[in-house]
């Protein structure tokens, strides 16, 4: 489904500030994989997701999504394959537009925008039902601007938008990090439900080691722009947090250093 071949990402090339953030990432993700991604500060987790989405063009290597080489394609063209939820809840929706307008925009992800009416009656009914399923009281607030929603409500809405039309890839970049623990748990639960129900291929960056172990069928660990650990299936199920820390130490020669990392 997704292939990264020898992906390098450098920033500010040719200046004293040159940073080599991704140093030859090779990654093959199969259809239906749910991959959790962990790593220290500055390991390149977000940069890797931004390379996949085309937010940043990579310096070297190739990116193939569902058999299509998208390495040179701009972000908006890749969007048809990818659903995305950002860390900052404000990033996922247009805050001066209503809930239904945001949903309608996402419903047309990757399609040309025409002069047809932006939202149809049929869609509105469908959105109402989908929002009712979220059970966050949003189904009666279709006309409200999203700026009035809480962080949790926004992330749930963004998740719903990202999962429209079975994207080839669902990318979640610490999408529960800005939420309080209870809301975070709820959004995570919804994430798992959406991924399982729609049989999506997903990648989730998280700072919670337990979540990283508990959720998904595969775990990768990044360190200084390289994948230093890639565990899946039964092997992943048997792991616990101390094991993981030990493996990190062995693979990187350092202690795990992430100021947000929750070890338990």
């Amino acid at each position: 489904m997704l292939k990264l071949n020898n992906v390098h990402q450098k920033f500010e090339i040719g200046t004293v500030n040159e940073k080599h953030v991704l140093c030859g990432i090779d990654l093959h993700i199969n259809e239906g994989d749910f991959v959790t991604i962990i790593g220290s500060n500055g390991a390149g987790k977000s940069t890797m997701l931004n390379a996949i989405t085309g937010t940043n063009m990579i310096t070297e290597g190739t990116i193939i999504i569902d058999g299509n080489d998208v390495t040179k394609e701009p972000e908006y063209k890749r969007a048809k394959y990818i659903g995305r939820v950002f860390q900052d809840p404000r990033m996922g929706t247009a805050s001066d537009m209503s809930i239904e307008e945001n949903l309608a925009i996402a419903y047309r992800r990757g399609k040309p925008r025409t002069l047809k009416w932006g939202i149809s009656h049929k869609e509105r009914e469908e959105y109402k039902n989908l929002l009712a399923e979220l059970d966050l009281g949003l189904d009666t607030r279709l006309k409200d601007k999203t700026r009035f929603l809480s962080g949790g409500q926004r992330q749930a809405l963004t998740l719903l938008m990202a999962s429209f039309h079975h994207p080839k890839l669902l990318l979640l970049d610490e999408h529960t990090a800005a939420l309080d623990p209870k809301t975070a748990a709820r959004v995570l639960e919804l994430t798992v439900k959406l991924v399982e129900e729609n049989k999506l291929t997903a990648m989730m960056v998280t700072h919670n080691m337990r979540d990283a172990l508990r959720i998904g069928n595969r775990l990768i660990m990044l360190h200084k722009g390289r994948i230093i650990l890639d565990i899946s299936g039964e092997e992943k199920k048997k792991l616990n947090v101390p094991d993981l820390l030990e493996m990190f130490k062995k693979a990187s020669g350092e202690e795990m250093n992430n100021d947000r990392m929750q070890l338990s």
């Binding site: 989405t53 937010t55 063209k77 990033m91 805050s95 925009i105």
Partner: peptide
């Protein structure tokens, strides 16, 4: 929200 709309293609 230019990031959002780019992500929507």
């Amino acid at each position: 929200n230019i990031n959002m709309i780019k992500a929507q293609g």
